[in-house]
Simulated scan of single mutants.
Amino acid sequence: MENIKIQFGFLFVILVSLYSCEPRIEMDMSQWGDNSLITNVQIMKLETQDGVKLEEYYVDETTLTGTRRVVVSSGAAVVDETAQTVIVNLMAGETITGLAFLIYHYGTKVEPLNDAPTAGIIGDLSTGPYTYRVHSADGSHTDWTITVNQL
């Protein structure tokens, strides 16, 4: 009797294992539609200084300084969804080097094209306009042109 219980238990485990190993249902990404849209672009720089504003940690009574992200674009960017263009204004008095784009989008990935700087990485923005490809979950993509205006 004990032997039958063990065999039944073993058979049950095998059946459950086989049932749970059936192919998974793939998610239909096309249900999300084309979401390769840019909603806003900002320009930022990194600021590092030893002032009180950046004091973050105290270790053994020693002040450690930090780096913070400072937005130097003026107002909201002008986004034209029909033409797939974005115009972003740089604040007066800011240099065009040592800056990076912050790209706000609905896509799954933003890919720089034609030697455009990678978004979020500090670089030189003086050779624009720049082209970025925004990929959507459904497999489609849209190429966007970002232009920087110096005020």
Rank of each mutant, 00 (worst) to 15 (best):
E26K: 12
D28C: 05
M29R: 15
M29T: 14
S30E: 15
N35W: 04
N35E: 15
S36E: 04
S36L: 13
S36Q: 06
S36Y: 06
S36N: 13
S36T: 08
V41N: 12
V41F: 02
V41H: 02
V41K: 07
Q42L: 08
Q42P: 02
Q42Y: 11
I43C: 00
I43N: 00
I43E: 00
M44I: 14
K45F: 01
K45G: 05
L46A: 02
L46R: 10
D50Y: 03
V52Y: 06
K53G: 09
E55G: 09
E56Q: 07
E56W: 00
Y58I: 13
V59T: 10
E61I: 00
E61Q: 07
T62S: 04
L64C: 02
T65E: 03
G66C: 11
T67M: 13
T67F: 00
T67Y: 02
R68Q: 10
R68A: 01
V70K: 04
V70Y: 05
V70L: 07
V72W: 06
S73A: 07
S74N: 10
S74L: 07
G75D: 05
A76Q: 14
A76E: 07
A77L: 09
V78F: 04
V79W: 05
D80S: 11
E81H: 06
A83S: 14
Q84S: 12
Q84T: 06
T85H: 05
T85Q: 14
V86M: 10
I87N: 15
V88L: 04
N89F: 01
N89Q: 11
N89S: 14
L90C: 03
A92P: 00
E94T: 06
T95P: 00
I96M: 11
I103G: 03
I103R: 05
I103E: 03
Y104P: 01
H105Q: 05
G107I: 03
V110E: 04
E111G: 00
L113R: 11
L113G: 02
N114G: 02
D115G: 08
D115R: 09
D115M: 10
D115E: 12
A116Y: 01
P117L: 10
T118S: 11
T118D: 06
A119W: 07
A119P: 10
A119D: 06
G120R: 14
I121T: 15
I122Q: 04
I122K: 03
G123A: 15
G123P: 03
D124I: 11
D124P: 02
L125Y: 06
S126D: 09
S126R: 07
P129Q: 11
Y130L: 06
T131P: 00
Y132T: 00
